[in-house]
Design a protein around this nucleic acid. Structure first.
Lengths: 222, 222
DNA sequence: GTCTATAGATTGATAGAC
DNA sequence: GTCTATCAATCTATAGAC
C-alpha cells in the first residue's frame, strides 16, 4: 500500500496538537499516532521536531502574511498617489482580516488560529523565534503605515499601541478558535466577520485615542 | 549549617525560570540548581512540580487580585451610593495598575510580570487552569462593572472587548517585563506609570467605541 | 531537612531490516 | 519510504542514609 501524503498527515496532526497543548507539551509519538504514521516518519520527512514546527508555521503563516503585505502595500501606494493619510481602519482591516478569516483545510478542526494567536506570546523561545521571523516584515510595514496615518503620535506611542493591537488579536484568535474554551458558548455565537468588526472597532478607537494632555507622558525616566 | 529559606529560594528561582522559558520547558533540576538547593527539595517542600507552580502563582497573583477586588468594590459601591454609572477609566485603572505596578521582592529581576502576562494565553493547560481559577472572581466583577458603565453595549460585546483588554495588558506586561526582549530598548524607556496611562487610554477608547450603526453586527449565525 | 542514588517513565532521534 | 527496535538523554518522583 502507498502512503502518498504522510507529510500532509503529519503536518495536520502537528498543527492540531501544537495548537491544543503547545509545542513543548506535544510529543512526536502523539503526533505520529494521530497522523497514523510511524514514529520515525517525522525525522525522515522533516529532520527534527523543531523543523516540523517550522514547516507548520511556514505552511499556514506565510500565506496570511503575504496577503497582509499585499493589502498593506496597496493602501500605502494609494495614500502616496492621492497625497493623503491612509485610514487607520483600512490598515487594521488589512492586518486583522487575513488572520481571523484563516481558512482551514482538511478535516481537522479550526485549531491553527489558536496556535497563531499564542505564538507571539508563547513562553517557548523556539516557537517565538520562528514566529517572529515570519511576521517581522508585516510588523515593520504596520508601524510604518500607522506612523503615516497618525503623524501626531510619537513613534513610541505607536509602538506600544500596535502591540496592544497584537495582544487583542492574539487573545481573540485563541478564544475564537479554541473549541474547548470555557467561553466557547459565547465564542461560538459569533462569526468571523463580526469578530473582525469588533476587533477593528476596538483597536481603531484605541489607536486614535488622544494622548494625555500634559505631555510628557512618556520618557519620564530618561 | 541551616537553610532556613529553602522554600523561598525555590519559589524565586521557579518564578524566574517559569517566566523566562515557560512551565513546561523548565525542569526541576534547573530550578533547584538555580536555587542552590537539592533536587529532592521541591518534592519535599511542595509535593510536585505542579504544586510548585501553584505556589508561585498564589504567592504573586493573589495579592494583585486582592487589590483589584478591593478597588473595584469601592468603585461599585460608590456608583451605587451616588446612583450613577461608574467611570470606565476608573474601572480600568483599578484593573491594570495593580498588575503593571507589580512590585518585585528579592534580588531576582522583574520577571514575574512576564509569567502573569503569558499565563492567560499559555498553551499549557496546567498553567491556564491554575491561573484562571485565581483570576475568575476579578474577571466576573470586571464584566459586571463594565456592564454597568456601558449599559448601551450588548453583554457579548462587553465580553469580547474585556478580553481585548486582557490581551493588550498581557502583551504589555510580557514586553515590559522581559529583559531580553528585542524591543527591550523601547520598553526600557517607559516607566510603569506611563505604561499604565498608555494602556488605559487605549483600552478606554476601545471599550467606549461606538458599535456599528447597522445592527446586528453580532449573532449573524444564530 | 538535606542529601545521594536511583527507580520508572518518557523523550527525541537513529540504525538497520524490509 | 516505512517499519521495528532501541539508544542515550532527560524527566519527575521517591526511597533511604544521615
Amino acid at each position: 500500500m502507498e502512503y502518498p501524503d504522510t507529510k500532509q498527515q503529519i503536518l495536520n496532526a502537528a498543527k492540531s496538537l501544537f495548537a491544543q497543548a503547545g509545542y513543548r507539551a506535544t510529543s512526536m509519538r502523539a503526533i505520529t499516532k494521530r497522523a497514523g504514521v510511524n514514529l520515525a516518519a517525522i525525522n525522515y520527512h522533516f529532520g527534527s521536531k523543531e523543523a516540523l514546527l517550522e514547516a507548520v508555521f511556514e505552511r499556514h503563516i506565510k500565506p496570511i502574511n503575504e496577503v497582509r503585505l499585499r493589502r498593506l502595500k496597496v493602501i500605502k501606494d494609494e495614500a502616496t498617489r492621492l497625497n493623503q493619510k491612509p485610514e487607520v481602519s483600512e490598515i487594521l482591516r488589512a492586518y486583522i482580516e487575513p488572520a481571523v478569516h484563516l481558512k482551514e483545510t482538511g478535516k481537522e478542526g479550526a485549531s491553527f488560529g489558536m496556535l497563531v494567536g499564542r505564538a507571539f506570546i508563547d513562553p517557548d523561545e523556539t516557537v517565538r523565534k520562528i514566529f517572529l521571523r515570519l511576521t517581522r516584515p508585516v510588523s515593520q510595514l504596520m508601524l510604518d503605515l500607522l506612523g503615516n496615518a497618525l503623524p501626531e503620535l510619537p513613534k513610541k506611542v505607536i509602538f506600544w499601541r500596535f502591540h496592544f493591537v497584537i495582544g487583542a488579536l492574539s487573545i481573540a484568535m485563541s478564544i475564537y478558535r479554541n473549541p474547548k474554551s470555557k467561553s466557547a458558548k459565547i465564542a461560538s455565537e459569533i462569526n468571523t466577520d463580526s469578530l473582525t468588526d469588533l476587533l477593528i472597532a476596538f483597536t481603531q478607537a484605541g489607536l486614535e485615542a488622544p494622548t494625555k494632555k500634559n505631555i510628557p507622558l512618556l520618557l519620564d525616566t530618561i
